[in-house]
């Protein structure tokens, strides 16, 4: 149980040799080595990720003048964001984004769980599991923009779906009005799901692949019906994987500006697009404020995670 990070689980000298070997001496003073191994990378990440991102919170309280931040405290960005004294459309978009992100996470969770369950448990030991999983990774290799744009082909008014439906209707002699699929929230969900489903599948699969066969067997032996085995045994075991996947999808949707841009219509914008626009409109405090809100939500999720499972567990998924 302590394996992987147990220190000194086993005494290397049960018999007790009095003269330490060089290796032992090194093992007794490993601090320097560990520091040299870890510290530069941590410093890199802190310097280039944490410090800039932390600065965002500060910038959101600064004023921008002539495309530069001026050290002058103001709450203007948050007034705009939360519609104090102005139109509160950003709040609407924030709420909409949260709604879309939650819906998307739930859909991805159900589908991702099912796929991972099949590949990780039903196909256990099959040599085709890996190729099947890799199929789900192919989208990562193609341009995200083009991949999103290509959803036009099935969804537009003269697209594959409408043409098929139209021909069917003509065959049956029914009247047919092309469905409006593109530029709707439905299209946004379709695009988001195809992008973020793999992010859900992989962590759940990893957790799934470690569910012990004997545990499943035991549940079956004790008379558990398959459904109960899934609910009572499998789900609790893969919950950390499901959580990681959910955070991936949720935060991913919160930060996605491409899918709603190409597939959404008026009234389907998501908050990250507004951040993009604020950047290009030199409203950097607002961009920083929007980023701060997204980050705050992500942070709440991470802290909740740490409370329930311990952050360390991430490393073991």
């Amino acid at each position: 149980m302590e394996r992987g990070h147990g220190v000194g689980v086993l005494d290397p000298h049960p018999g007790g040799s009095p003269i330490p070997t060089p290796a032992e001496r090194f093992a007794e003073h490993p601090r320097l080595l560990h520091l040299l191994q870890i510290a530069p990378t941590l410093a890199f990440v802190v310097a280039f990720v944490f410090i800039p991102v932390a600065s965002i919170f500060v910038w959101s309280f600064l004023r921008v003048e002539n495309a530069r931040f001026v050290p002058e405290f103001t709450l203007q960005a948050y007034y705009v964001l939360f519609g104090v004294g102005e139109s509160a459309y950003l709040v609407d978009i924030l709420v909409r984004t949260l709604r879309v992100a939650v819906t998307q996470t739930l859909i991805a969770l159900v589908l991702g769980f099912a796929v991972a369950y099949f590949v990780g448990i039903k196909m256990r030991g099959s040599r085709y599991a890996l190729p099947l999983l890799l199929l789900f990774a192919i989208p990562f290799l193609t341009s995200y923009l083009l991949r999103t744009l290509s959803w036009w082909l099935p969804l537009q008014e003269r697209g594959v779906i409408n043409v098929i439906l139209g021909n069917l209707a003509a065959l049956l002699g029914l009247p047919f009005e092309p469905l409006k699929l593109l530029f709707t929230e439905f299209a946004v969900h379709v695009g988001l799901l195809s992008t973020y489903l793999p992010f859900m599948i992989f962590p759940i699969y990893l957790a799934m692949s470690r569910v012990d066969e004997t545990v499943l067997q035991a549940s079956a032996d004790l008379g558990g019906r398959p459904r109960h085995t899934v609910l009572r045994v499998v789900i609790p075991l893969v919950l950390p994987g499901m959580l990681i996947g959910s955070v991936f999808v949720f935060v991913g949707v919160m930060g996605d500006s491409v899918v709603p841009l190409f597939l959404g219509g008026p009234g389907n914008s998501l908050i990250a697009q507004l951040m993009d626009q604020a950047v290009s409109g030199q409203r950097w405090s607002l961009a920083a404020a929007i980023a701060s809100v997204i980050l705050a939500i992500a942070l709440v999720l991470i802290i909740a995670w740490e409370r329930f499972f311990g952050l360390r567990r991430i490393g073991e998924i």
Partner: peptide, 8 residues
């Protein structure tokens, strides 16, 4: 990992 790319 959980940081949207454009924010970073």
């Amino acid at each position: 990992i959980f940081l949207p790319g454009m924010i970073q």
